[in-house]
Write a protein that binds this DNA or RNA. Structure first.
Length: 505
RNA sequence: GGGUUGAUAGCUCAAUGGUAGAGCAGUACCCUUUUAAGGUAUUGGUUCUGGGUUCGAGUCCCAGUCAACCCA
C-alpha cells in the first residue's frame, strides 16, 4: 500500500480552514489514544452478532459484545450514552464511569461520532424503556478523522450523495433501504430461476463484435492480442450459443454497457437479466416474468400486489397494481384505443393527426415511426399497471421470429410498467439463413458489425426458444419507488471533478 | 446538443444591492437512565471559479465548472 503523504492529509491550501480544525481535533484524540498504548485502528473483534441479532436475543442481564459505528453521543458527565449502529439498526450503549475499566473509560473520553467501537457488557433496560448494553469494556476499532454529515438531516445534496455514496448510506436510512432491497431482489431472482432449472452462466463482457442489441458500444484494447474489443451491449448472442450447446435453460444477470446518453433512466453501465428457455415461446416467457415480478413484490412486503410510490413526505404519489393476470394487448389495438381511426389515415392524415395531438414527429420520416411515436407518447408513457404489448410490427424488432398468422408482426412482447419498458420477451429466431439476412440488412454498409461466429453456431442448430431481458435497475426503481436510476445504482457515473491539491476540501 | 434551476460554515438551511446568520456538529464548563438529551459560554466563511457594473455585490450582468430537472 502506498503510504499517505502526511502533508496531504492536512489542507495545504488553507491550513486554518474550519474543516481542517475539526480534523485536527480528531487527530489530537487519535494521538491521545495512541498515548494510552492503544492502536486506534484495531483488528479482530468477536461480537455476539449484528445489532439486529443482539436485539433479537436481548435478555435482561445477558452478556453480549457488539461492534458498530457511533452515530450519536450523549454525554451526561459521569455517564454517557452512545448509539451504536450498523446496516441493520441502532443499539444504545451506556458507559458509566464506575462500571467500566480504566482503559475503556480513558478511551471513551476520546470518542467522536463516526468512530467504530466494540463493546462488551450486559443487556439492560433503561428507565425510559430502551433496550441497552451496560458497557464493561470498550475497544476502539477505527477512529474517524472527518466529521460525519448532520445526524438529523443527513446528506441532501444529490451530488454528494452520488459522489460519496458512503456518506449517503451512513446518513440516510431511505437510501440504505433501497440498496438492501436491491440486493434482496437480485438474490431472489437467482433463487427463483434456479428453482425452475435455469443455469446461471457468465459470458464475455469483452467482445470482438458487440451484438445482441442496437447500441453504441464502448471500445477498449487488448495489448497482448493487439486487438480492439468492445464492452458488450448485451449477452444475447453468447447465451444463444449455449442453447446451441444444448443447455435448455440459461440466464445471465450482470452488467452491460452502452455508450449513450445519461439520464434519469439511463446509466452507461447497467444490470440486465437475460434468460433463454429452449422449446418455449414469448407467451410462456411472459408468464415467467409475470410470476417473477409478482414474487419479488410480495417478497418486498407488497402482499396485496400494490406497489406505492411516495414523495419526500411519505404521501402516496402513485400506486401500481401488479395483481395477476396482467393485461395483454396487441400493439395496434392499444394505438387504436388511444387514437381512434389511426390506422385508417394515410400518411398525410397521420401527420395532420399528430399536429392536432401536438406530437412532434419531425424526426419520423416513415409511417411506422410516426406510429411508434404515438405509441411511446400516448400508450407507453400512460401505462402504469403492467401491460404486455404483443404483435409488434416487424420493423421495430428486426431480429425476432415472424408471427405465423400475420407475418407483418413478430412474436414478441414488450412489458410496460409505470410508463416505461421493463422487459422485452421473444420467440427467438432460430433459422440461421433468416437470421443472417436480418443481421446483414440491419448492418447495412457496416458488415463488420455482424457476429459471423454466432451465425455459424446457429447453423449447427439452435432449438426454438423463448428469451427475455429485464433491466434490473428499472425493475428496482419500479419496486422501490425510486424516481431516478441513480437512486438504485450505488456509484452512478458523474462527470469527473478536477482534483484539487487538497484532499480536505 | 438546447432550455430551466441551483452551488453560502463539516452537514442542513437563512440573508431588499448596505456589518454574511441560525440549528446540528466542534470546543469549554455543569449534569450518574439520556435518546433530535438538556443548560451556559464559544470557535468556525476565498458566499463554486474568473471577469464586469456599482460608492458598495452572496445578491445584478457575462463567461466557465459541476449538479438536478425538462426537451431532443
Amino acid at each position: 500500500m502506498e503510504q499517505p503523504n502526511p502533508s496531504s492529509l492536512s489542507s495545504p491550501a488553507s491550513p486554518t480552514s474550519p474543516l481542517s480544525e475539526l480534523v485536527a481535533v480528531r487527530r489530537q484524540k487519535l494521538q491521545a489514544i495512541r498515548d494510552l498504548g492503544i492502536d486506534p485502528f484495531g483488528g479482530l473483534f468477536e461480537s455476539t452478532g449484528t445489532v439486529a441479532e443482539v436485539r433479537d436475543g436481548f435478555e435482561e442481564g445477558r452478556c453480549v459484545s457488539l461492534a458498530g459505528r457511533i452515530t450519536a453521543y450523549r454525554d451526561m458527565g459521569k455517564s454517557r450514552f452512545l448509539d451504536l449502529s450498523d446496516m441493520g439498526g441502532r443499539m444504545q450503549v451506556y458507559v458509566n464511569a464506575k462500571e467500566v475499566d480504566e482503559t475503556s473509560l480513558a478511551v471513551s473520553a476520546q470518542l467522536d461520532i463516526g468512530d467504530f467501537i466494540g463493546v462488551e457488557g450486559e443487556c439492560f433496560t433503561t428507565r425510559t424503556g430502551e433496550s441497552s448494553i451496560k458497557v464493561r469494556s470498550l475497544k476502539i476499532l477505527s477512529k474517524s478523522l472527518r466529521p460525519l454529515p448532520d445526524k438529523w438531516h443527513g446528506v441532501q445534496d444529490p451530488e454528494t450523495r452520488y459522489r460519496q455514496r458512503y456518506l449517503d448510506l451512513i446518513a440516510n436510512p431511505s437510501s440504505r433501504a433501497i440498496f438492501l432491497q436491491r440486493s434482496a431482489i437480485v438474490r431472489e431472482i437467482r433463487r427463483f430461476l434456479d428453482e425452475r432449472g435455469f443455469l446461471e452462466v457468465e459470458t464475455p463482457m469483452m467482445q470482438a463484435v458487440p451484438g445482441g442489441a442496437a447500441a453504441e458500444p464502448f471500445k477498449t484494447h487488448h495489448n497482448a492480442l493487439g486487438m480492439d474489443f468492445f464492452l458488450r451491449i448485451a449477452p444475447e448472442l453468447y447465451l444463444k450459443r449455449l442453447l446451441v450447446a444444448g443447455f435448455p435453460k440459461v440466464f445471465e444477470l450482470n452488467r452491460s454497457f452502452r455508450n449513450e446518453g445519461i439520464s434519469r433512466r439511463h446509466n452507461p453501465e447497467f444490470t440486465m437479466l437475460e434468460a433463454y428457455w429452449a422449446y418455449a415461446d414469448f407467451q410462456l416467457m411472459s408468464v415467467l416474468v409475470e410470476e417473477l415480478v409478482c414474487h419479488l413484490a410480495v417478497m418486498l412486503g407488497n402482499k396485496d400486489h400494490q406497489v406505492h410510490h411516495r414523495d419526500g413526505e411519505g404521501n402516496v404519489t402513485k400506486t401500481i397494481n401488479l395483481s395477476r393476470p396482467w393485461k395483454r394487448a396487441s400493439y395496434n389495438e392499444l394505438i387504436e384505443a388511444a387514437v381512434p381511426g389511426w390506422f385508417s389515415f394515410d400518411k398525410a392524415g397521420k401527420i395532420a393527426r399528430c399536429a392536432e395531438l401536438k406530437l412532434d414527429i419531425s424526426h419520423c420520416p416513415e409511417e411506422f415511426e410516426m406510429t411508434q411515436h404515438v405509441f411511446e407518447k400516448l400508450v407507453e408513457e400512460k401505462t402504469i399497471d403492467p401491460c404486455f404489448v404483443t404483435h409488434v410490427p416487424k420493423e421495430l424488432v428486426p431480429l425476432a421470429r415472424l408471427n405465423d398468422a400475420d407475418p407483418s408482426k413478430v412474436d414478441v412482447y414488450e412489458l410496460i410498467i409505470n410508463g416505461q419498458e421493463i422487459s422485452p420477451g421473444y420467440s427467438e429466431l432460430n433459422d440461421p439463413d433468416l437470421q443472417r439476412e436480418r443481421l446483414e440488412h440491419q448492418a447495412g454498409e457496416e458488415q463488420q458489425k455482424i457476429d459471423t461466429e454466432f451465425l455459424e453456431a446457429l447453423e449447427y442448430g439452435m432449438p426454438p426458444a423463448g428469451g427475455i431481458g429485464i433491466g434490473i435497475d428499472r425493475l428496482v426503481m419500479l419496486l422501490t419507488g425510486a424516481e431516478s436510476i441513480r437512486e438504485v445504482i450505488l456509484f452512478p457515473h458523474l462527470k469527473q471533478r478536477i482534483q484539487s491539491a487538497s484532499s480536505n476540501t
